[in-house]
Design a protein around this nucleic acid. Structure first.
Length: 420
RNA sequence: GUGGGCGUAGCUCAGCUGGUAGAGCACUCGGUUGUGGUCCGAGAUGUCGCGGGUUCGAGCCCCGUCGUUCACCCCA
């Protein structure tokens, strides 16, 4: 094979692409129901937007970006995440000057030059939302509830929600001082020490048992929160409880993007491997201002479509039958083929999913094709049917058929389908 | 970026201590006149990831490379 897709990209083709599409649509549905509106964004931005917004010290910016120079000598970068680009657009088009909170969503590919593994791709797909201009804790709860609704609508059960608060700038700063002091006293290898200096919180996330043990007595950010932060966080928890959304407080949770403050959350799936985060997000006070906007608070999330699909497959909740056509039409002969095209055209206009057997194959072969399509019903259209004006509507899984006139086919199909 | 596993037909894989490739599934056609899912028969398909090397001879050995996978790291 001469050409292959670039290393580590996720690519979806039939039949799995249909499941991918279903996951994406299912995650987006509750977002729209909550009144969020689409932002269709470029997949590349000025490089500086990400270094300023995401944070130059983050791994995402410092070693995982696809950066290139365009023909005009501008430095551009394939978006590694969605929030910063979305906020840039919000500011540029004054959406933060309308009614607040401004609520937007987006979906598409993102790019990070990481070493690929299951659930981690160099081009991956996310759906995200951002709500800008309100620090109401009820908004935090709603944002989390929307993500939760999406995962639940997929039929996922084996996932859990982890929650924490990262406090405000001052609280983080004073915790950082103590944490760095604590880490100074530890016996760590060089690479780990270096990571600690870039972001000491990172060590809480280390999976090695010896590091976990060393960090078990480290000062927790949650213990540094002031009254305002604590009250806000408590309110969020209260709303989630009222919604019946279960969560666990994880004071060790770390996010890789610098901009998070306050409420921060992550949805973790139990059946995935090391890449088990299927979605996450949080508040980002200061980010909008950081990239040139007003001083407004915001909150958002990103849900991983690739990983949600993996999770749905792992739980066995992808229903392939739901994607099957309603009707498979088999024309026999030239005149029938014209009629079949006309009938399918009409039925599709009435929202039925209809396929036609092509290629003048034997009836037996066409029936096999119908079977493979998983179509619910099949209609054979030959000279006899054309002259009589009536056809046999055959239900594939029972083999039973009923006689229907061509003019009432749509109605018959409609009632037949609704019986299941 | 670091470390380990793997790379043979569309898919899942077999191929003994090196002698120039196979199975199952899937696919196409057929088992006489217009009905699928079972069964039976026939057929098509591979530069054995790629490039070097060792050898009379390599899918099997060595090196490199690309891809993939698991973990670290990172995070969707």
């Amino acid at each position: 094979m001469k050409y292959q897709a670039p290393k580590g990209v996720s690519e979806y083709f039939p039949p799995r692409s249909r499941a991918f599409e279903w996951v994406r649509e299912t995650l987006i549905a509750p977002i729209k129901q909550a009144g969020y509106q689409l932002l269709e964004l470029p997949v590349f931005e000025e490089t500086e937007l990400f270094t300023r917004g995401v944070g130059a010290s983050t791994d995402v910016v410092s070693k995982e970006m696809y950066t290139f120079e365009d023909r005009g000598g501008r430095s551009l970068t394939l978006r590694p995440e969605g929030t910063v680009g979305a906020l840039r657009s919000v500011i540029e088009h004054g959406l933060d000057r309308g009614s607040l909170p401004a609520k937007i969503w987006y979906s598409g590919p993102f790019f990070r030059a990481e070493r690929p593994q299951a659930g981690r791709y160099r081009q991956f797909y996310s759906v995200g939302i951002e709500a800008i201009g309100s620090d109401d804790p009820a908004l935090d709860a709603e944002v989390i509830a929307i993500a939760h609704a999406g995962f639940s609508a997929l039929g996922l059960k084996k996932f859990h929600l982890e929650l924490t608060s990262l406090g405000d700038v001052l609280e983080r700063a004073s915790h950082r001082v103590d944490l760095l002091n604590y880490i100074e006293g530890l016996d760590l290898d060089e690479a780990t020490t270096e990571r600690a200096h870039i972001n000491p919180l990172r060590l809480f996330d280390d999976k090695r048992p010896e590091v976990k043990a060393l960090m078990s007595k480290a000062p927790l950010l949650l213990d540094y929160l002031g009254d305002d932060s604590l009250q806000h966080f408590a309110a969020v928890q209260g709303y989630l409880q009222a919604l019946g959304i279960k969560f666990t407080i994880n004071p060790l949770m770390v996010r890789g993007l610098d901009y998070y403050t306050g409420t921060t959350f992550e949805f973790v799936h139990d059946l995935l491997g090391a890449q088990s985060g299927i979605g996450g997000g949080g508040r980002y006070d200061g980010l909008l201002e950081q990239i040139g906007g007003q001083d407004l608070s915001g909150i958002g999330f990103g849900l991983g479509i690739d990983r949600a699909l993996l999770a749905a497959e792992a739980e066995g909740v992808v229903d392939a039958a739901a994607f099957a056509p309603d009707l498979f039409l088999i024309p026999l002969g030239t005149a029938s083929k014209t009629k079949a095209l006309q009938i399918s055209h009409e039925l599709r206009r009435e929202n039925f999913t209809v396929e036609i057997a092509f290629g003048d194959r034997s009836l037996k072969a066409a029936m096999k094709a119908a079977d493979k399509s998983k179509a619910r019903y099949v209609v054979v259209l030959g000279d006899a049917e054309l002259s009589s004006g009536s056809v046999e509507l055959k239900e594939m899984h029972t083999g039973a058929s009923t006689s229907v006139t061509l003019t009432s086919l749509a109605m018959a199909l409609s009632t037949a389908l609704s019986h299941h």
